[in-house]
Amino acid sequence: MSERDGSYVDGLREAVLQEMERDPSVVCFGLDVDDPKAIQGTTRGLVEKFGQGRVFGTPLAEDAMTGVAIGMALAGLRPVHVHIRMDFLLLAMNQLVNIAAKSSYMYGGSVSVPIVVRSMIGKSWGQGAQHSQGLYSYFMHVPGLKVAAPTNPHDAKGCMIAAIRDDNPVMMVEHRLLYPHRGPLPEAPYEVRPGRARVLAQGGDVTLVGISHALAECLRAQRHLADVGVAAEVIDPIWLAPLDVDGIAASVAKTGRLVVVDNGWTTCGASAEIASAVLEKLQGQRDVRVRRLGFANTTCPPTPGLEALFYPSARTIAAAARDLVEGRATGWLPAERADAVEIEFRGPF
């Protein structure tokens, strides 16, 4: 079977386009969704196809527009609300946490809020303090929200379709550096549904769980580790809430070593949740060694040298994983390899 190839951007765009064709209740809006840049192409062509009633740019009013999305959903629409940076979701927290997450429960199941909130995490080219944050653990914390963080074109499309069809609020966590990534992208609509992690590389020595763009770094780290004879199993959680704890724990039961690499801070973060959930599950059955990696516990600096230090990289992940496997500080740091460097985007944006 010949499989079609496409980018992460293609996956996001095609998912919304196909769902809008299938279901007239789907609408798409957000700051600049209908401008010439079309959110890096992810909303390209939607306004021409579906008109300004169903696709529109908004005022800079994240708080109210999130509430507007909730009101639309209460009236039977399925809004997709787009934010060009995840950092801007902080302006929408009240509506997301106090209303969207709680409506089904606090109104006794008499209403539902099927909204999709897309947001993009930035990295590199000096994104700095307020264009770089991966804040998904805030949403994982709250009952009533689902959180997807797809890492490849196939899952970008499948998670988006599943999110639109879900009767609950879903946070779609996207990463700017994943946008140009290419891979298999089936044309017919399909869902990548919540709660099932995927094993991307098999190995018996250590389990690497990578979240969002950190998964790409884990896949590169796996190659560095293979060079020194360490077999890493790489797992993509895909959905952070609900989280496939069983799937991750099954791998750790085999390897006995878990490295969780986050695209956010470790304190009270997704890596803390994943590690503790796995340990709770395996305690008494398996002795497990754990390491968490994530953003440096600082604000993200834009200057290139410090910015590079701020993030875990394939090399630092590999080094940490090898130390965990050997149970000592080996001092090993793999050399750069040309086939394991991210193609970072250039500015101005």
Partner: peptide, 10 residues
Amino acid sequence: IPHAVGYAYA
């Protein structure tokens, strides 16, 4: 307040 507005949009 924005819920009423969103409902009215629909």
